[in-house]
Design a protein around this nucleic acid. Sequence first.
DNA 1: TTCTCCTGTGAACATCCTGTGACCATTTGC
DNA 2: GCAAATGGTCACAGGATGTTCACAGGAGAA
Lengths: 287, 287
Amino acid sequence: MTESIRATEEAAPSSTSSASSLRIAVLDRDSGFIQVLSKRLDRLGWEHRVLGSPVPTDAVASMRLSALVVDLAVLGPQAWEWLERLCGALPELGVVVCTGPSTVAQRVRGLRLGADDWITKPCHPEEVIARVQGVARRRRRPTSRTESKPMMAGEVEIRSDRFQAFVDGHSLDLTRREFELIELLAAAEGRVLEREEIYSRLWGYAMVRGDRSVDVFVRKLRQKLEKASPQWRYIHTHFGIGYRFAAESLEVVGLDVPSSVPVGWNTGDQSELTGTQQDRELAAGAL
Amino acid sequence: MTESIRATEEAAPSSTSSASSLRIAVLDRDSGFIQVLSKRLDRLGWEHRVLGSPVPTDAVASMRLSALVVDLAVLGPQAWEWLERLCGALPELGVVVCTGPSTVAQRVRGLRLGADDWITKPCHPEEVIARVQGVARRRRRPTSRTESKPMMAGEVEIRSDRFQAFVDGHSLDLTRREFELIELLAAAEGRVLEREEIYSRLWGYAMVRGDRSVDVFVRKLRQKLEKASPQWRYIHTHFGIGYRFAAESLEVVGLDVPSSVPVGWNTGDQSELTGTQQDRELAAGAL
DNA sequence: TTCTCCTGTGAACATCCTGTGACCATTTGC
DNA sequence: GCAAATGGTCACAGGATGTTCACAGGAGAA
């Protein structure tokens, strides 16, 4: 089998968009605490930044955080006011107060003002993380399929909120599996996905050798794409490996290389992949 | 599919923290704690009940709680398992663990399993209340009834303040569940809602595989809608996924030319109107 | 080149999904 | 308490979807 392609291909599906990665900020001056916490956050792969002094609400807003960990001591006498303003202005932001010893009244006040949790120092970074995670988990309500913007590739629009793909506003009438397949392929646009990976991500378990389900669904998808968008090719076969999604127009006659229109947010590195001749030849016959 | 008919716009999900009356349960045996807490809850006007021993998940579900305060000590060695099952089945329920001294690892475990907060006894009832309030505040998603404007879709007017839908000023006589269903669907107008999501948002806990309740209520709803507004179709089935709410008119544009078929609707659709409602777009090429 | 393996394809087959009516349990109103 | 309304379960039927199979032709390797 052509090891060359296998090598260029991304080894790990890694992406694992299981949403466990968060973006948070820590407003604190306790260097020891920050250091330990940052280390843990790094290891988790969470984006994070440390703020040494109070920042205005709109600055926090522009960071697009999942959650903010704040030591009220840093805020000084303006703490309550700042907290109230922040929570009022950014109701979607998770706010975790992590501060020194406090009275019940203070904690109640903080929580009433909009804080989502209150941790008393000294505390273990793991507990901070667990609580931040809990806050973010609860916050993230509407982010299921609602907010996911539709993907465009060539003439095809893939709308997750409708479990359907459209060309020129006209539905492709994809079944559920067909849609899951095109969604998966399009999300990995430009990358070659192995059959085994496609299968395991759609069916949820490992593919048995010889199973042709993926091929069959690729054919169904190609048929529907061909019918709705005859001037484009979307799914390209990589012999011995799997499939790659990339919208390529057939209309360009004067060029030896078909123009490729990638989806906006995913920077596919198809350059190295298209270098192999297998792709060229198969792509001609394939949709 | 006709994108054109979008009668209402999404109401802003700005859930206010106003409606402060909650329904909670306390699973604990610490009589002193219970007594003090109950007193405070009474004064706040929160509905609450005290449970002395572990109850099965579906029993908790039937209580329709906003939040549950639980001392893990009552649960004994099964505590983690119980907690995990509960939080898994009732993702909408706020769970506040309020228990004796614990290790960091225990707290992290509890929070990871789905608990929304963890309070260490001894604690002040006011803090318990503040944290329960915080949890419930974040959990609550439905827009408050009084503020939400009535929704219009096709000929149907959905009035949340009356828990009822109307056509031409005439009530559809929807039952509570039927109304909750149409309200949910209409609020997500144009989007496909999965059966599991519909179920969990109406019933408050996870749908078991094979449950047909959603289908049955969709049928009841369709019957009443069909009777009151025969010229429109509102609920569309998406095979293998769920349902989508969108008002679509069946009315022939030119009544003086009855023989003409409206653009976008084939004869198959028309002929089926007399019989069972096969308005399912998945079957029709008109999508 | 030949040979072997892989993929495209159409169709048959099995499975799952949904609409539907009937039935039972529980709640609500009187 | 009774009766009606409401919520929920069940089984059946028809159809949409998913899976398997056999065959043909192409791609890669020796």
